[in-house]
Amino acid sequence: MTAVVSLEDVTFSYSGPKVLDRINLEISEHEFIGLVGPNAGGKSTLLKMMLGLLKPLAGKVRVLGDKPERSCTQVGYVPQYPLFSREFPITVEQTVLMGRLGVSGMFGGYRRSDREVARRVMLETEVADLSSRQLCTLSGGQLQRVLMARALACEPRILMLDEPTANIDMRIETEIFDLLKKLSSRMTIIVVSHDVGFISGYVGRVACLNRTLVCHPTAAIDGDTIRSLYEADVKMVEHHHH
Protein backbone atom coordinates (compact mmCIF):
# COMPACT_ATOMS: atom_id res chain seq x y z
CA MET A 1 0.00 0.00 0.00
CA THR A 2 1.31 3.47 -0.79
CA ALA A 3 1.69 6.13 1.88
CA VAL A 4 -0.76 9.05 1.70
CA VAL A 5 1.31 11.03 4.19
CA SER A 6 5.06 10.69 4.56
CA LEU A 7 7.32 12.65 6.90
CA GLU A 8 11.10 12.37 6.57
CA ASP A 9 13.35 13.73 9.32
CA VAL A 10 10.97 16.61 9.97
CA THR A 11 12.30 19.19 12.44
CA PHE A 12 10.58 22.38 13.59
CA SER A 13 10.92 25.17 16.12
CA TYR A 14 9.07 28.42 16.81
CA SER A 15 12.22 30.57 17.18
CA GLY A 16 13.33 28.60 20.28
CA PRO A 17 13.99 25.03 21.29
CA LYS A 18 12.98 22.29 18.88
CA VAL A 19 9.29 21.40 19.08
CA LEU A 20 9.71 18.49 16.69
CA ASP A 21 12.96 16.61 16.29
CA ARG A 22 13.62 14.38 13.28
CA ILE A 23 10.13 12.95 12.94
CA ASN A 24 9.66 10.03 10.55
CA LEU A 25 6.17 8.76 9.87
CA GLU A 26 4.31 7.05 7.04
CA ILE A 27 0.53 6.87 7.04
CA SER A 28 -1.10 4.54 4.57
CA GLU A 29 -4.41 4.88 2.76
CA HIS A 30 -7.57 4.29 4.86
CA GLU A 31 -5.56 4.16 8.06
CA PHE A 32 -7.19 5.56 11.25
CA ILE A 33 -4.29 6.93 13.28
CA GLY A 34 -4.17 8.85 16.55
CA LEU A 35 -1.49 11.45 17.31
CA VAL A 36 -1.17 11.61 21.08
CA GLY A 37 1.15 13.21 23.57
CA PRO A 38 1.34 15.79 26.35
CA ASN A 39 0.46 19.45 25.85
CA ALA A 40 3.12 21.36 23.88
CA GLY A 41 4.40 18.01 22.64
CA GLY A 42 4.09 19.18 19.03
CA LYS A 43 0.88 17.41 18.00
CA SER A 44 -0.92 20.40 16.51
CA THR A 45 2.33 21.63 14.99
CA LEU A 46 2.81 18.35 13.17
CA LEU A 47 -0.78 18.47 11.91
CA LYS A 48 -0.35 22.06 10.68
CA MET A 49 2.74 20.91 8.78
CA MET A 50 0.78 18.15 7.05
CA LEU A 51 -1.74 20.85 6.07
CA GLY A 52 0.98 23.12 4.70
CA LEU A 53 0.12 25.89 7.21
CA LEU A 54 3.65 25.61 8.69
CA LYS A 55 6.88 24.79 6.89
CA PRO A 56 9.44 22.41 8.45
CA LEU A 57 12.83 23.80 9.44
CA ALA A 58 14.39 20.68 7.97
CA GLY A 59 13.11 17.48 6.46
CA LYS A 60 10.42 16.66 3.93
CA VAL A 61 6.62 16.49 4.17
CA ARG A 62 4.64 14.82 1.39
CA VAL A 63 0.86 14.50 1.34
CA LEU A 64 -0.77 12.46 -1.42
CA GLY A 65 2.61 12.45 -3.14
CA ASP A 66 2.77 16.24 -3.38
CA LYS A 67 3.70 19.30 -1.33
CA PRO A 68 1.12 19.77 1.45
CA GLU A 69 0.15 23.28 0.34
CA ARG A 70 -0.77 21.79 -3.06
CA SER A 71 -2.64 18.75 -1.80
CA CYS A 72 -4.50 20.59 1.00
CA THR A 73 -7.65 20.94 -1.11
CA GLN A 74 -8.01 17.15 -0.88
CA VAL A 75 -7.74 17.27 2.90
CA GLY A 76 -10.59 18.03 5.29
CA TYR A 77 -9.53 19.87 8.45
CA VAL A 78 -11.34 20.24 11.77
CA PRO A 79 -9.51 22.82 13.93
CA GLN A 80 -9.22 22.64 17.71
CA TYR A 81 -10.41 26.18 18.29
CA PRO A 82 -12.58 27.73 15.62
CA LEU A 83 -10.81 30.91 14.49
CA PHE A 84 -14.02 32.66 13.55
CA SER A 85 -16.23 34.78 15.78
CA ARG A 86 -19.35 32.96 16.97
CA GLU A 87 -21.27 36.20 16.36
CA PHE A 88 -20.54 36.15 12.61
CA PRO A 89 -23.85 36.50 10.71
CA ILE A 90 -23.85 33.13 8.99
CA THR A 91 -26.03 30.00 8.99
CA VAL A 92 -24.96 26.40 9.49
CA GLU A 93 -25.61 25.59 5.83
CA GLN A 94 -23.47 28.49 4.59
CA THR A 95 -20.67 27.41 6.91
CA VAL A 96 -20.79 23.84 5.63
CA LEU A 97 -20.90 25.07 2.02
CA MET A 98 -17.51 26.73 2.53
CA GLY A 99 -16.08 23.24 2.36
CA ARG A 100 -17.08 23.30 -1.33
CA LEU A 101 -14.81 26.26 -2.09
CA GLY A 102 -11.85 25.12 -4.11
CA VAL A 103 -13.83 22.08 -5.29
CA SER A 104 -16.38 23.98 -7.32
CA GLY A 105 -15.54 26.97 -9.54
CA MET A 106 -13.60 29.98 -8.31
CA PHE A 107 -16.13 32.74 -9.00
CA GLY A 108 -19.86 33.15 -8.64
CA GLY A 109 -22.18 31.17 -6.38
CA TYR A 110 -22.48 27.53 -5.37
CA ARG A 111 -23.90 24.96 -7.77
CA ARG A 112 -26.78 22.61 -7.11
CA SER A 113 -24.31 19.72 -6.74
CA ASP A 114 -22.50 21.65 -3.99
CA ARG A 115 -25.75 22.04 -2.06
CA GLU A 116 -26.46 18.32 -2.46
CA VAL A 117 -23.05 17.42 -1.03
CA ALA A 118 -23.61 19.85 1.85
CA ARG A 119 -27.02 18.29 2.51
CA ARG A 120 -25.55 14.78 2.53
CA VAL A 121 -22.72 15.53 4.96
CA MET A 122 -25.09 17.45 7.25
CA LEU A 123 -27.30 14.33 7.42
CA GLU A 124 -24.23 12.22 8.12
CA THR A 125 -23.09 14.46 11.00
CA GLU A 126 -26.70 14.90 12.20
CA VAL A 127 -26.87 18.67 11.79
CA ALA A 128 -29.35 18.74 8.89
CA ASP A 129 -32.10 19.99 11.24
CA LEU A 130 -29.92 22.94 12.19
CA SER A 131 -29.13 24.02 8.62
CA SER A 132 -30.85 27.42 8.82
CA ARG A 133 -29.71 28.18 12.40
CA GLN A 134 -27.20 30.90 13.23
CA LEU A 135 -23.82 29.72 14.50
CA CYS A 136 -24.19 31.74 17.71
CA THR A 137 -27.24 29.68 18.71
CA LEU A 138 -25.39 26.33 18.67
CA SER A 139 -24.04 24.36 21.62
CA GLY A 140 -20.39 23.28 21.73
CA GLY A 141 -21.20 19.76 20.57
CA GLN A 142 -23.40 21.01 17.72
CA LEU A 143 -20.69 23.43 16.57
CA GLN A 144 -18.18 20.58 16.53
CA ARG A 145 -20.46 18.54 14.27
CA VAL A 146 -20.87 21.54 11.96
CA LEU A 147 -17.08 21.86 11.72
CA MET A 148 -16.91 18.17 10.84
CA ALA A 149 -19.60 18.63 8.20
CA ARG A 150 -17.62 21.54 6.73
CA ALA A 151 -14.52 19.32 6.52
CA LEU A 152 -16.50 16.44 4.98
CA ALA A 153 -18.06 18.79 2.41
CA CYS A 154 -14.58 18.99 0.85
CA GLU A 155 -15.06 15.29 -0.01
CA PRO A 156 -11.56 14.76 1.34
CA ARG A 157 -9.24 11.80 0.84
CA ILE A 158 -7.71 12.54 4.22
CA LEU A 159 -9.55 13.92 7.27
CA MET A 160 -7.40 15.66 9.89
CA LEU A 161 -8.88 16.57 13.28
CA ASP A 162 -7.18 18.54 16.05
CA GLU A 163 -8.63 17.57 19.46
CA PRO A 164 -12.15 17.31 18.04
CA THR A 165 -13.66 16.54 21.44
CA ALA A 166 -11.65 18.79 23.74
CA ASN A 167 -14.54 21.08 24.71
CA ILE A 168 -17.49 18.70 24.79
CA ASP A 169 -18.83 16.05 27.11
CA MET A 170 -18.10 12.33 27.13
CA ARG A 171 -21.36 11.18 25.55
CA ILE A 172 -20.89 13.36 22.46
CA GLU A 173 -17.21 12.41 22.36
CA THR A 174 -18.22 8.77 21.97
CA GLU A 175 -20.75 9.66 19.26
CA ILE A 176 -18.17 11.63 17.31
CA PHE A 177 -15.62 8.83 17.47
CA ASP A 178 -18.26 6.30 16.41
CA LEU A 179 -18.86 8.49 13.36
CA LEU A 180 -15.11 8.70 12.66
CA LYS A 181 -14.85 4.92 12.88
CA LYS A 182 -17.58 4.66 10.25
CA LEU A 183 -15.90 7.25 8.01
CA SER A 184 -12.55 5.49 8.26
CA SER A 185 -13.73 2.84 5.80
CA ARG A 186 -13.69 5.42 3.00
CA MET A 187 -10.91 7.85 3.95
CA THR A 188 -7.68 8.19 5.88
CA ILE A 189 -8.23 9.76 9.31
CA ILE A 190 -5.60 11.46 11.44
CA VAL A 191 -6.82 12.59 14.83
CA VAL A 192 -4.88 14.56 17.45
CA SER A 193 -5.78 13.81 21.06
CA HIS A 194 -4.28 13.99 24.51
CA ASP A 195 -6.40 11.08 25.69
CA VAL A 196 -4.56 7.96 24.56
CA GLY A 197 -6.76 5.69 26.69
CA PHE A 198 -9.97 6.83 25.03
CA ILE A 199 -8.87 6.81 21.41
CA SER A 200 -7.03 3.49 21.56
CA GLY A 201 -10.43 1.82 21.41
CA TYR A 202 -11.02 3.34 17.99
CA VAL A 203 -7.79 3.97 16.08
CA GLY A 204 -5.64 1.31 14.47
CA ARG A 205 -2.32 2.86 15.41
CA VAL A 206 -1.12 5.47 17.88
CA ALA A 207 1.78 7.82 17.19
CA CYS A 208 3.12 9.12 20.50
CA LEU A 209 4.63 12.53 20.14
CA ASN A 210 6.74 14.39 22.65
CA ARG A 211 9.30 16.23 20.54
CA THR A 212 10.26 12.82 19.13
CA LEU A 213 7.87 10.19 17.85
CA VAL A 214 7.24 6.53 18.70
CA CYS A 215 4.56 4.44 17.03
CA HIS A 216 2.53 1.68 18.64
CA PRO A 217 -0.17 -0.60 17.35
CA THR A 218 -3.08 0.03 19.73
CA ALA A 219 -3.01 -3.53 21.08
CA ALA A 220 0.45 -2.97 22.60
CA ILE A 221 -0.39 0.15 24.64
CA ASP A 222 0.14 -0.39 28.35
CA GLY A 223 1.11 1.57 31.43
CA ASP A 224 4.82 1.61 30.53
CA THR A 225 4.18 3.17 27.13
CA ILE A 226 2.09 5.94 28.60
CA ARG A 227 4.46 6.48 31.52
CA SER A 228 7.44 6.96 29.23
CA LEU A 229 5.46 9.34 27.03
CA TYR A 230 4.16 11.60 29.80
CA GLU A 231 7.15 11.01 32.10
CA ALA A 232 4.78 10.42 35.01
CA ASP A 233 2.57 7.73 36.43
CA VAL A 234 -0.76 7.54 34.69
CA LYS A 235 -3.87 5.91 36.02
CA MET A 236 -5.02 3.22 33.61
CA VAL A 237 -8.72 2.71 33.12
CA GLU A 238 -10.02 -0.27 31.22
CA HIS A 239 -12.13 0.75 28.24
CA HIS A 240 -14.38 -1.52 26.31
CA HIS A 241 -15.89 -0.10 23.17
CA HIS A 242 -18.42 -2.03 21.23
Binding site: L51, G52, L53, C72, T73, V75, Y77, P79, P82, L83, F84, F88, I90, Q94, T95, M98, G99, L101, G102, V103, M106, F107, G108, G109, Y110, R150, C154
Partner: peptide, 22 residues
Amino acid sequence: YFCYQQFLAVSFDEEFARLRGI
Protein backbone atom coordinates in the same frame (compact mmCIF):
# COMPACT_ATOMS: atom_id res chain seq x y z
CA TYR B 1 -20.85 40.57 -6.79
CA PHE B 2 -18.21 38.43 -8.45
CA CYS B 3 -16.20 37.51 -5.33
CA TYR B 4 -18.94 37.30 -2.67
CA GLN B 5 -18.12 33.72 -1.56
CA GLN B 6 -14.38 34.39 -1.50
CA PHE B 7 -14.76 37.55 0.60
CA LEU B 8 -17.16 35.71 2.90
CA ALA B 9 -14.70 32.83 3.39
CA VAL B 10 -11.75 35.16 3.98
CA SER B 11 -13.63 37.32 6.49
CA PHE B 12 -15.11 34.27 8.26
CA ASP B 13 -12.10 31.97 8.66
CA GLU B 14 -8.82 32.85 6.94
CA GLU B 15 -7.09 29.60 7.81
CA PHE B 16 -9.84 27.43 6.38
CA ALA B 17 -10.09 29.63 3.27
CA ARG B 18 -6.34 29.16 2.72
CA LEU B 19 -6.74 25.38 3.00
CA ARG B 20 -9.48 25.51 0.37
CA GLY B 21 -6.96 26.97 -2.05
CA ILE B 22 -8.32 30.54 -1.95
